[in-house]
């Protein structure tokens, strides 16, 4: 089933025409990778899906993004509810300067959950789902910055899933991590796809191959090719895609 349908999306950042009309369908409970060279608009595209681009004052957006058949750019859409439904994990781990517990409770509290027991329960479940519980259960009230980079990023994933999103956007989530932390993050992503629709931007082509079922190749703001990941890697239709996935891109 299609979860996110992007229809002729165009994005300008100031005078820069960054996304030049993209059409794309993202299936429910799957992992879709967005790959492409630096500056091709991957991050901008991703940030259109939870309207983080709204925060940039000179961003202009045209086209539609349908989530569950509702255009998220409709005037009656509450952007804060949207971001609750479409969570985000950022390039650099960015926990809040608060305790591990508070990092996860934050999203719940701002959305009105007051029941302490319920918060406790969700904090534990989110940390378990993010494969972090065993490492942090004895130091829930210590500052999140005491964790390693990889742990911080899994904490950020736990924070994102605590508010029960349906879609999770990941913007190069492993780019600041060492190989071992990257490995455990990738395993987590594969586990998470059972329950979430995941869109991941990555610079690492092998990572796209390892974690995703679908891959979109973006180049200069346009969608060059979109297909099942194995097809993109074994039988790319476009010459540019072939060059990029084989590392011969210049």
């Amino acid at each position: 089933m299609v979860k996110v349908e992007v229809k002729d999306l165009k994005v300008w950042l100031g005078k820069n025409f960054v996304i030049k009309g993209i059409n794309l369908e993202i299936l429910e409970n799957s992992v879709t990778s967005i790959i492409g060279p630096s500056g091709c608009g991957k991050s901008t595209f991703l940030r259109s899906i939870n309207r983080m681009n709204d925060l940039i004052s000179d961003a202009n957006i045209e086209g539609e993004i349908m989530i569950d058949d509702k255009n998220i750019y409709d005037p009656d859409v509450n952007v804060f509810d949207l971001r609750r439904k479409v969570g985000m994990v950022f390039q650099k781990p960015n926990p809040f300067p608060k305790s591990i517990y508070e990092n996860i409770a934050y999203g719940l509290k701002i959305h009105g959950t007051k029941d302490r027991n319920k918060i406790d329960e969700i904090v534990e479940k989110s940390l378990r789902d993010a494969n972090l519980w065993d490492e942090v259960k004895d130091k829930l009230f210590e500052n999140a910055f005491a964790l390693s980079g990889g742990q911080q990023q899994r904490l950020c994933i736990a924070r994102a899933i605590a508010i029960k999103p349906e879609v999770i956007l990941m913007d190069e989530p492993a780019s600041a991590l060492d190989p071992i932390a990257t490995n455990s993050l990738e395993r987590l992503i594969v586990e998470l796809r059972k329950n979430y629709t995941i869109v991941i931007v990555t610079h690492n082509i092998q990572q796209a191959a390892r974690v995703s079922e679908y891959t979109a190749f973006l180049y200069l703001g346009e969608l060059v090719e979109f297909n099942k990941t194995e097809k993109i890697f074994t039988m790319p239709k476009d010459k540019k895609t072939e060059e990029y996935v084989s590392g011969r891109f210049s």
């Binding site: 804060f80 509810d81 969570g87 809040f96 701002i110």
Partner: peptide, 19 residues
């Protein structure tokens, strides 16, 4: 990045500024 994280979980501007 702290502010982005806050908006990312659906916080409003005031919630982000305050918390």
């Amino acid at each position: 990045t702290f502010r982005e994280a806050s908006y990312g979980v659906g916080a409003t501007k005031w919630q982000t500024v305050y918390h």
